[in-house]
Structure formats: C-alpha cells, structure tokens
Amino acid sequence: MPLTQLEPNAALIIIDLQKGITAMPVSHPVSDVIQRSAELARAFRERGLPVVLVNVAGAAPGRTSRPRPDFSQFPADFAELVPELDAQPTDHRVTKHAFGAFPGTGLDDYLRSRGVTQIVLTGVATTIGVESTARSAYDHGYHIVFVSDAMADLSAAAHTHSIENIFPRMGEIDTTETVLARLRA
C-alpha cells in the first residue's frame, strides 16, 4: 500500500549506513540508498522532525547458537556513519548490538518523548536491520513507512521478498520522491 499520509509527528530512522556496511556488495547501488537517505534527512530536519541515525557496533552478548562476528577484526572506522548523511547535533544517534534498533537502545523512549507515532525507514540491509527494526516498531504500535528505493540488501531476491511479502503486513511502502513531496507540501 502506498503512503496515505505523512503524520505531523513522523520520524526518519536510517539503518546502518556506516562505512563498514556500505562497503559490502548489495543488491542495489548503495550510493543511491545513501543519497536518498541523506535527502530525506535534510527534509526531515528542515521540518523540525526527528532524524535517527543507527549504526551497529557489535553483536548481542551471550549468543551461542552461531559464531558471533569479531568486530575487533573490522577496520577502525567500520561503525562510523557515512559522511553523506551530514549528521547534525539535533540527530539522535543509536548504536545497536542486535539486528534491530529497538532492543536495549532506548529508542522507543526517545520517540515517545517526542510524540512520534509514525516512522519512516531507510537503510541496509532490508532483511536484517530494516526488517528487524520494523518488526519492533510495529510491536510498539508505530505506523511504518518503508522507503523502498532507499534500502538495499545483500540479496536482490531477499530484498524483493521483504518489500512484496513482509512489509505490506506492517506498513505502507513508497518512494523517496513521494515522501519528499509530502514533507514539502
């Protein structure tokens, strides 16, 4: 379902557009995902709406079912956000240690303290960070907008599956152009 309305108290959440993640091969040009997410961030800031920049800096502690990645082996700048996002002091930063941005981060408290009822999601990877964040947001009662041309995955088939089969169950799906038009209306 396309975007029906952009609520006056929406927030933008950008998932894992960081140097280490964006260096990985993904299904769609990551430069487009970064550019569209940055454009949305500028528009949200211009309207005085919250922008949340999420990065991942390690795995959840205590996992034993699979080998955990050793983040100390990644480059020192792995978790740094890409400069194109032009992070601002007013942006809320979330460093996560799980697939989604809600567990253990205080994100729900931050959003509720600002009266946010709708979140707009972009980022990488569609089936991991974005989808996990969306599932938690849905469970917390937020209205969700997925910006389909501002996300990518390691697999084109997996990306398409989330866009066509999972996301319609949780929210609305539209493009950067449509969300920007609603912000500027």
Rank of each mutant, 00 (worst) to 15 (best):
P2K: 14
P2T: 15
Q5V: 13
Q5N: 13
Q5W: 00
P8T: 14
A10R: 07
L12W: 06
I13G: 05
I13Y: 02
I14K: 10
I15T: 07
I15P: 00
I15E: 09
L17C: 01
L17E: 01
Q18S: 13
K19P: 00
G20M: 02
I21A: 09
T22I: 11
T22W: 07
T22Y: 06
A23S: 13
A23Q: 10
M24L: 15
S27A: 10
P29C: 04
S31M: 03
D32T: 15
V33H: 03
I34E: 05
R36N: 15
S37I: 12
A38V: 07
A38F: 02
A38W: 02
E39R: 15
L40W: 07
L40R: 10
F44G: 07
R47T: 12
L49M: 13
V51T: 14
V51C: 05
L53Y: 08
V54G: 02
N55W: 05
A60T: 07
R63P: 00
R63M: 14
T64P: 05
S65F: 09
S65A: 14
R66T: 14
F71T: 08
F71W: 10
P75F: 04
A76Q: 09
D77Q: 09
F78N: 07
L81H: 15
L81T: 04
V82T: 09
V82Q: 04
P83G: 08
E84M: 05
L85M: 14
L85R: 12
D86L: 10
A87G: 04
Q88I: 00
P89K: 11
T90P: 00
R93H: 14
R93G: 02
V94N: 12
V94P: 06
V94A: 06
T95A: 09
T95L: 01
T95M: 02
A98F: 03
A98S: 13
G100Q: 02
F102P: 01
G104L: 11
D108Q: 15
D108Y: 02
Y110G: 10
S113I: 06
S113R: 13
R114L: 14
G115P: 07
T117M: 04
Q118F: 03
I119D: 09
I119S: 08
V120T: 10
V120Y: 04
G123S: 03
G123L: 00
V124H: 04
A125P: 05
A125D: 12
V130H: 11
V130M: 10
E131K: 07
T133Y: 00
A134Y: 07
S136H: 09
H140I: 05
Y142R: 11
Y142G: 01
Y142E: 08
H143E: 13
M151D: 08
A152L: 00
D153E: 11
D153I: 09
S155G: 04
S155F: 06
A156L: 14
A157W: 03
A158Y: 03
H159I: 12
H159A: 07
T160Y: 01
T160R: 02
H161E: 00
H161P: 01
E164G: 03
E164T: 07
N165C: 00
F167V: 01
F167E: 01
R169Y: 01
E172Q: 15
D174H: 06
T175Y: 07
T176R: 13
E177R: 14
E177K: 15
E177M: 10
L183V: 08
R184K: 13
